[in-house]
Structure formats: structure tokens, C-alpha cells
Simulated scan of single mutants.
Amino acid sequence: MNTPEHSQLGKASAYIDQYDASLLFPLPRETKRLEIGIQGRLPFLGADLWTAFELSWLNLRGKPQVALAHITVPCESTHIVESKSFKLYLNSFNNSRFASADAVRNRLREDLSAAIWHGGSVLASAGIQLLLPEQFGREAVRELEGLSIDRLDVECELYQPAPQLLSAALHEQPVEETLVSHLLKSNCLVTGQPDWGSVQIHYSGPQIDQAGLLQYIVSFRNHNEFHEQCVERIYMDIMTRCKPAKLSVYARYTRRGGLDINPWRTSHPQLPPPNLRTARQ
């Protein structure tokens, strides 16, 4: 079984500029999900929304082409793709010739779909959208909508996930609200390098104590875990401690190595949020 320690994270890596799908390094989701009490059927829906800002290849005449890529990885997949391996894989397109952007898109979809199911049946393909240069001007910058809880003047002392900070008014009338914080920070599971993000929490149910929620988000500051795993931990802790009737957790992390990863988990069927970058991305 692949483990993070066996990946290219934190290691010197050769620059391979000829297409090579074997560079993708899948990691099982199950290991970390078991830590937070997820076994069998998933208690949420959702996806991981990736943006690749450094995608290039050659056309059949050897002329470089560039594009942005929006990638959607269903949360039901058995594996994630370690992000450095994804970057190395994308680099392998740099001096490889493809007949068209559609050929590149199809190759990305086929390779990533195989990786996220890692040898099993592909039950849901990765979604791939390529944006060519003439479409770049349409890419918007937009902040997460909701009431900022960063306005609260709270004392923060815990810097490892502390779900005991979460509480809700379980015996009062339910509410529906969207809360946002830009103070999410965690660290890479392997290298310990910082990952910066913003998080949006939409829920209906007992009103969540906002000060406790902010302290809880801050408590991830020294925690080592991948983006997808942090968001699932946040989702499960809020669901367990605050007992909302409906819950969605969406985080947008700043890019590293030309990639950003934006996990979204929800308790109920709905369209995924638009993959629009924030100012920090």
C-alpha cells in the first residue's frame, strides 16, 4: 500500500518532461478516515476541486500550448493523488506532443480516474475542464460568502485540533447561516510545510457558538494533515459536536507548486461550489 512517506514529498526529484502517467502517486483515503470514525458508507457527499495553473504541452508541430485546468475528484474515490506527484506528472506533458487540447483533456481524465481508484473499477471519473488562453480573462476572483467570524476577539491557546471547543445551542430554535474564516492553517503531513486556507461553513440546525468555532479552526495551526483530511475532520467534528440538520464545509487553500486543492463536503445533494479562486490564491 502506498504511504505518504514513500511519495516524492520532501525529496529531490528529477524533472521529467516526457509524458509519464506512472508519476502519479495515489494515497488511500481509508487510513485517515478510520482515524475520524468513518467506516463503510460515507457520511457525506462532495469533491476535491483542484486548479492546475502550470499546464503546457506541444502541438504536433512542436509549438508550446498552455492552459489552466479545473479538476474535480469525487470524494467517493478510494484514493487521493499526492500533490507533488501530480505536479511532476503535469510537468511530463511539457515536451510531449498532443494533437489537440481535447487529447490532453482525455489523457488527464483517463490517468487521474485510474489513479483515484488505484486498480479498482472506476465508479466515477475525475472531471477535467481546460481553459485556453482566450478564456483566461473570464477567470474571476471572488471571496467566500458568509459572515466572518474572524471579527471576534478570542483568546487562542490550542494549536492541535480541539473538537471540545465546539458547541451549539441544542435546546434553542434552529438557525441557518454561513460562517467564514480566513484563519485556517495546517501543515503538510510529510514535510511539515505550512498550508494556508479559508473555510466556509454553511449549516442549518442548533446555532453554533461562533467564538468556539473560531478557536477550533485556529486549533489546526500546528496540525499535520493533507487538505482533504483536514476538511473531513472539520466536517465530522462539527457534525458530532453541534448536530446540525444540514452541513457543508468548503475550504480553499492557497496554491503550492502551481496547484491549489479545495475540498468540499456536504450532508445533502447539491451542486458543487464554483471553482473560483480567492485573492490569496
Rank of each mutant, 00 (worst) to 15 (best):
V141C: 12
E232L: 08
D20F: 00
I71K: 02
V122F: 01
V122T: 09
W264L: 11
Q8W: 07
K84D: 00
E177Q: 15
G205T: 02
P43N: 06
S96I: 02
V104N: 03
R151S: 13
G192V: 04
S248W: 01
L183Y: 03
T278Y: 00
A114K: 15
Q164K: 12
T266Q: 13
V122Y: 02
F25L: 03
N2Q: 11
Q160D: 02
L213F: 03
A14S: 14
M239K: 15
R61H: 14
A103N: 06
V73D: 01
G146R: 11
A21Y: 00
G212T: 02
H6L: 15
Y15S: 12
H223W: 07
K243E: 09
L144I: 08
T178Q: 11
K11R: 15
Q39N: 11
Q164N: 08
D150K: 10
S85C: 02
G257Q: 03
V73L: 11
P273R: 13
G40Y: 05
N59T: 10
N224V: 03
R61M: 09
V66E: 05
L184F: 11
R221C: 06
E232I: 07
G62H: 08
L170C: 01
E225A: 15
I217H: 07
D150N: 13
L183D: 10
P206K: 08
A21H: 10
L108R: 06
L189E: 15
Y203W: 06
A52R: 01
V154N: 02
A101T: 02
V154I: 14
E155H: 09
S13N: 14
Q200E: 14
P133E: 04
A251T: 10
G127D: 03
A69Q: 00
E232G: 10
W50Q: 03
S92C: 08
L170H: 14
Q193F: 01
S219I: 09
G119R: 08
V180S: 10
P43S: 06
E35T: 14
P269L: 12
S219M: 06
P64Q: 07
L247P: 10
L24N: 03
L147A: 12
T178I: 14
S219D: 05
E35L: 14
H118F: 14
S198D: 05
E157A: 15
G257A: 04
L123Y: 00
R277Q: 11
L130E: 01
N106K: 13
I208H: 04
S56N: 11
H118P: 00
P263M: 10
A169W: 01
L147R: 14
Y19Q: 01
R142G: 01
L147E: 15
R280K: 14
H70N: 12
A69T: 02
V199Q: 02
S267W: 02
